[in-house]
Amino acid sequence: MTTQSIRPHPDISLHQLRIFTAVAHAATLTEAAKQLGIAQPSLSQQLSRLETLVGARLFNRRPGEMELTEAGLYLLPKAEHVLRGMRDLEDGLMEYTTGRRVTIRLAGITSVLRVLLPPALRQLQTRFPDIDFDIQDMAPSDILELLYDRRIAVGLLADSSLAASGGGFAQIPLLTDSHVLAVPGHLDLSKVERPERDLPPETLALLNQSIQFAFGTQHTKRVENWYERLFPDHTVVAQCRSFEVAAELVRAGAGVCLVPALSLLHGAETLKGIRLYAVNAAPRHIMAVIPTQYQHVEPYRTFLDTLKDAAQTIVLPQVQPIPPFLDGGPQAKF
């Protein structure tokens, strides 16, 4: 009689198993989301996707309570076994990296990769000449997905995409950035108190042409709300998935855009043909997110140090003061 091995469903990811076990041991979905460092809507979506793949409900959902079903009780010890095995595998493999060629797999948002990574990479290679990099440029939600599935070791993104630290990951602060209103270079807003009164019709029309982002995050919704409050007559002329593409559209005179100042840097130079204005917004903090067991092991420890060193050399673009019409109290805050 032969014994068949049980194979995991090919579509079930480690990320989903981590979410399932966190929810099983947490008092609430909110607590589980904080432990994992992800937004609650993303957690709920992944949990529902796992239940669809399994073909059974894993929790009985009641107000303020998530109770495991029979299927959930069956899955929990097996999921924990898989996750323990993966942690043991990662820890064991780290012992073999010294003296061997290592590939650092990372993903980040474009502005951070373009500005911080080149100097950090050059510095690291002088210490570890056998290192190479696998670099992916993508949206924050995709970066987090790769991190949780352990397909990358380092994620570079803004803190607005992260929940509280947890889930076995360390969040290393690198750089503080700010949001600015980018407008074509000829558009002077320094003395504009009421755009409809102080600007000629063609300039007012340009100011009301907004270029926005489609990241599918809470940040995107905040940007939309900001435009609705301060530019009630605006029209969205373009949606982008790259701050850099949006900046080029602004420079070409297609509209205006709320962007992080870091995205306007090309090397050490600020993108020409664009004027930048401050807005009432909290600063954006750029983080390196890495599994906790990696942050004190070479070459990752030195890589984090080189990122910090590179961040200290960054000179952000010059920004003009907030235009009068954007400095209108609480409703003007982003």
Rank of each mutant, 00 (worst) to 15 (best):
H81S: 07
E65I: 04
R49F: 01
I104K: 08
V54H: 10
K78H: 12
G64T: 14
Q123T: 10
T98V: 12
G99C: 03
L106Y: 05
P41G: 11
E95C: 08
G99V: 03
E67C: 08
L58V: 00
T98Q: 06
V82N: 08
P118H: 07
M86R: 14
Q45K: 15
R100S: 09
A107G: 15
T110R: 15
E80M: 06
L89P: 02
A71Y: 02
A120R: 04
D88P: 01
L53R: 10
D88I: 09
V102R: 03
L83M: 05
A71P: 00
R84T: 04
V82S: 05
R84P: 01
L124W: 04
R84D: 11
P119S: 15
G85S: 12
G108F: 10
L43F: 09
M66F: 06
V54K: 15
T52R: 15
T103C: 11
V112L: 12
R114Y: 09
S42C: 10
D88Y: 13
R62S: 06
L68D: 02
T98C: 04
R127A: 10
A79F: 01
A107Y: 06
V54E: 01
T103Y: 04
Y74N: 11
V112R: 00
L93D: 03
G108Y: 03
R57M: 00
E67D: 13
R122S: 12
R122H: 08
P118E: 12
G99N: 04
E80D: 14
A107C: 14
R100F: 09
Q125P: 03
L116W: 11
Y96S: 05
L73N: 13
L116K: 06
A56S: 15
I104F: 11
L113E: 11
D91Y: 00
P118C: 10
R87M: 13
E51D: 04
G64A: 14
E90V: 00
S42I: 12
S44F: 02
E51F: 00
E65V: 05
R127P: 00
A107N: 08
E90C: 00
L53C: 11
E65C: 02
V102H: 05
P118N: 09
L73F: 01
S48L: 12
R105V: 09
D88S: 13
R100L: 09
E80N: 10
G92N: 11
L76T: 06
G85H: 03
